[in-house]
């Protein structure tokens, strides 16, 4: 009973999260097969063959050149049915979000999505996933028969220690027809040049929904000024149009790693954390002592930002 890991690649490189997903699979002590899909993915298959895997399957088809949910599901349905794995693991990316639930549904299964950890209990796999944007955890189990389906959250497993090996490569041409594919994607693009480059900032003060209203923004602006920091924000602040999109930090915004990141009234949902976890020193100000942001913070103040931020400004001015 093996594990199939569906890897992803961008611009000719395997994504980091794909490698983390391989690490998750390898830690489950079962034979692991990596799958790579696309058109001309030989080099990627060779790279995967350098890890301690049972096998690498390259699914090659011109209709897989561009990702489509229909094309990927066709190809993978055939693969899963032929290989009869115990578990199919995906990186929890925007791409797998788009098709993995469809694939699982086609087989009458449910994907355990966005998994952060696992353990075996009485021979059964227990997976950990987050509820309420990281405020609670849940242990989930599969009822019913294999194959099971799960996707792995970014940063949950470490990819830097993947054991080396030599795995055989099987190249397969799945049966896909142009008529199977109902959506027509265009090439990915980026919006026009950003006016602010948060990645260049040494210090960032980032504001979240704790600020409550746009009118209150001067409270954090003053703190940013006192620290000589760039102002950034969580997604809802930009969604509301209170700050421009280019100041958004997170999975759909910028990824930053300043010397100092001060999160003010931000709860710490995973989509925000992935954009700032790499900061050298993280400070969180939040009135909720259980806010997930404190889990990544080096220093935290539990309190009302409307009292704490002005107090910090005063303190910073005092000793300069």
């Amino acid at each position: 009973m093996s594990i199939l890991v569906i890897t992803e690649h961008r611009e000719g490189t395997l994504t980091r999260l794909s490698l983390e997903t391989l690490a998750a699979a390898l830690s489950m002590e079962k034979p692991v097969t990596a799958v790579v899909l696309g058109h001309s993915v030989g080099a990627l298959a060779s790279q995967l063959a350098g890890y301690a895997l049972e096998r690498v399957i390259a699914l090659e088809h011109s209709l897989l050149l561009q990702y489509t949910p229909d094309g990927y599901c066709r190809a993978l349905l055939e693969t899963v049915q032929a290989r009869e794995p115990w578990l199919v693991l995906f990186p929890h990316s925007y791409q797998s979000r788009d098709y993995a639930p469809k694939l699982a549904t086609a087989l009458g299964r449910v994907l355990a999505s966005d998994v952060t950890g696992h353990r075996m209990e009485d021979g059964a796999l227990v997976l950990v996933r987050q509820l309420f944007q990281g405020k609670l955890n849940a242990d989930v189990r599969f009822a019913g028969e294999a194959p099971h389906f799960a996707s792995i959250q970014a940063g949950a497993y470490r990819a830097d220690t993947l054991p080396a090996g030599t795995a055989p490569i099987e190249t397969v041409t799945p049966e896909i027809h142009a008529a199977d594919i109902r959506t027509n994607p265009e090439a990915p693009f980026r919006e026009a040049q950003r006016a602010v480059d948060l990645t260049a900032a040494d210090v960032i003060v980032s504001v979240g929904r704790g600020i409550k209203e746009a009118e209150n923004l001067p409270v954090v602006q003053a703190l940013a000024e006192a620290l000589g920091a760039e102002l950034a924000a969580s997604r809802p602040i930009c969604d509301n149009g209170w700050l421009p999109m280019e100041r958004q930090v997170g999975s759909s915004g910028q990824t930053v790693a300043p010397k100092l990141y001060v999160a003010v009234g931000i709860s710490g949902a995973i989509q925000h954390l992935v954009g700032m976890k790499g900061s050298k020193v993280i400070v969180a100000i939040n009135k909720d002592p259980d806010a997930p942001i404190f889990e990544v913070a080096d220093y935290g103040i539990v309190g009302d930002l409307f009292e704490v931020a002005p107090a910090l400004v005063e303190e910073l001015r005092k000793e300069r």
Binding site: G108, R109, V110, L111, A112, V126, Q130, L131, G134, K135, L136, N137, A138, D139, V140, R141, F142, A143, G144, A284, P289, D290, P292, F294, E295, V296, A297, D298, Y299, G300, I301, V302, G303, D304, E307, V308, A311, L312, E314, E315
Partner: peptide, 29 residues
């Protein structure tokens, strides 16, 4: 259900964050 929620719980705290609470001025200092 094919997927069952077995248990819901508060996430364990791993990192040792230095937390200050109480008076805002004191925490700030």
């Amino acid at each position: 259900p094919v997927l069952e929620v077995a248990r819901v719980y508060a996430p364990p705290r791993g990192k040792r964050t230095q937390l200050f609470d109480g008076d805002a001025r004191e925490s700030a200092a």
